[in-house]
Design a protein around this nucleic acid. Structure first.
Lengths: 339, 339
DNA sequence: CTGTTAGCGCGTTCAC
DNA sequence: GTGAACGCGCTAACAG
């Protein structure tokens, strides 16, 4: 193994000089020696030891990607997570950081990761509750929360305008003539994202003097748990929803497949609207109409914000709200308003 | 920040003793002191510094997940990669390792990651060519290659029996009465996985005295590049394929959607068979029949193999071949054999 | 512009 | 069963 000290000896300079060359502090070194040293580094195939650097600087270039979830859960099975975390990984790598994925339900393990690795920054996603307050390290380590609704404004957040999304979807379905509209969340009880989408949806109904009855709301997208309830709901043509607004494309796709098994044709018999605009939404048939968010843009915003806060610790907390738009495809039909 | 030295002082013992307690070398410490020290560690909320440990031990608990790809590519957009890498991440975390995702096309950056982090081990996936030979670190650092066809047998490999998969798919389609069968790869030129699936498929045809004409082979699953060619191929009912065997479920799903746009009904007009059995295969309509592989089992096998080789550096190289099976769903129709 | 020196926090001999 | 002392590879003061 080649060390910095060996480079220094081979180049006939001190370790400081080599260190300065490596870290681009070229103002402190003459051009000549820079080139000499770089040449020797190349020749000897020297690679700096990240552990030693982290130790000496009391900070690393590791960024913890902290996702809320169980330790026995493959979070990348969810296509939204996959695309988002993949994008974070890409942008962080491009900027010279080392992303480290950590999945946890327990804020104490988060503290361990942050301090154990002298992390440069943290990226949170998923519904972390009030517990994040207990993470004392966050007072010193830059962090950005995605899609979190924290009552604490003293923190960096990049979120989607979920209420606007709920409203937009509701208005669209109403405009298409639907009056009885079901709502399928992903995990309504835990996810404030879902809750805001629902409340936006409710607003759009209220604006026309309508409201959504409880039996039209499905708190999670798990097909097994919902199948019986759904069947009952769909049994009576006079009262069943003519459309369903789903909090995620994957849920929308599952609903389409469920309806098909139940003998309903989408969108002729029942319409389905998704959320997110993942690639899979153009793969199912009918192609899923959806409220679109730009996940790559979100990831880029998050990484950019984090990096800025790493580079300047005195930046004030930032809040960014990203917009949504409607993407019409094939899964929502215009129907006769029965009034 | 609490250090080991402070724990030692607080407990009235030496740093060695604390170190031994932390690392479970309890044979060297009396039970009494173990408990005392652990109590103090808890009270002071001590968290070991990973960088310092790595430095002192000249090895870390980081495992590099090296995926072949471009640096500006979100590899987790591909659902197969997402599920596989998600599973690796989960299994590695459960065993106390820190997965670090690295995407690269250049074997030199691999060397950097391995040495820079004093990585405990490496997990490769994707089609790394002969270049991996140049990675000298692999002579000392344990590694497992997934889905790689290396001519060098002196390396750990967990692979799928792609030829058997190709054969199985071919036989199934033949049994369903198909005689003109197209083949859609993902990246035939680069992917030896695809090549083996194709050669297995060819074998199954040859066993019945058939073969596949070049114009039935699509070397990649990119719809844009293939649309025109596909349209031409499908124009003549007398010569067009009655079925397509796709190297990936995602490609199968794309083909189904493409055919629908072209006015063909799957499976009535044309059958589609996928490969992998990803969750999305039961989400598209018609549900995709597919050659199934167990990705979680693959990931578990890979992680287990790596960990064993980390713990015992003298283990001989291992080769594991995982099996495939047919999953019949709705996308392949039985047709009249026209002979 | 360059070199010397003193740690960073921990593991590991080797004496006791 | 325990502790003192050294070194891992690098950075950061500071002195020159």
């Amino acid at each position: 193994m080649v060390t910095l000290k060996e480079i220094a000896k081979a180049a006939g300079v001190s370790t400081t000089t080599v260190s300065n060359v490596i870290n681009g502090k070229k103002s402190r070194v003459s051009e000549e020696t820079v080139e000499q040293v770089e040449e020797i580094i190349r020749q000897l195939g020297y690679i700096p030891n990240e552990a030693a650097r982290s130790l000496a600087q009391r900070k690393s270039r590791v960024v913890a990607l902290i996702q809320q979830g169980r330790i026995d859960e493959n979070i990348l099975t969810n296509p939204y997570n996959a695309v988002y975390i993949g994008a974070l990984t890409m942008y962080l790598s491009q900027r010279g950081y080392y992303p480290m994925i950590r999945v946890t339900d327990d804020y104490r393990t988060i503290e361990q990761d942050i301090k154990g690795w002298n992390v440069a920054g943290c990226l949170f996603s998923g519904s972390f509750g009030i517990n994040v307050r207990h993470i004392r390290s966050l007072e010193t380590v830059p962090a950005v929360f995605a899609d979190c609704y924290l009552e604490n404004p003293n923190v960096n957040v990049v979120a989607l305008d979920d209420e606007a999304g709920g409203r937009l979807g509701g208005e669209y379905l109403l405009d298409m003539g639907h009056r009885r509209i079901g709502f399928v969340a992903s995990a309504l009880e835990y996810s404030e994202v879902d809750q805001h989408r629902l409340s936006g949806f409710r607003e759009s109904l209220a604006a026309r003097g309508l409201s959504i009855p409880d039996e039209y709301v499905f708190p999670d997208g798990n097909p097994d748990r919902n199948l019986e309830r759904l069947s009952r709901l769909m049994a009576d043509p006079a009262t069943r929803p003519t459309a369903f607004f789903c909090c995620a494309d994957i849920t929308g796709a599952v609903m389409i497949s469920l309806f098909r098994e139940m003998g309903f044709c989408v969108p002729r018999d029942v319409s389905v609207l998704g959320f997110d605009n993942l690639p899979l939404s153009s793969l199912c048939s009918p192609k899923l109409s959806t409220i679109s968010q730009n996940i790559h843009r979100k990831a880029e915003t998050v990484v950019d914000m984090l990096v800025r806060h790493i580079e300047d610790k005195h930046l004030p907390p930032e809040h960014v709200l990203l917009g949504v738009e409607l993407v019409e495809r094939e899964s929502v039909a215009r129907i006769q308003n029965e009034l």
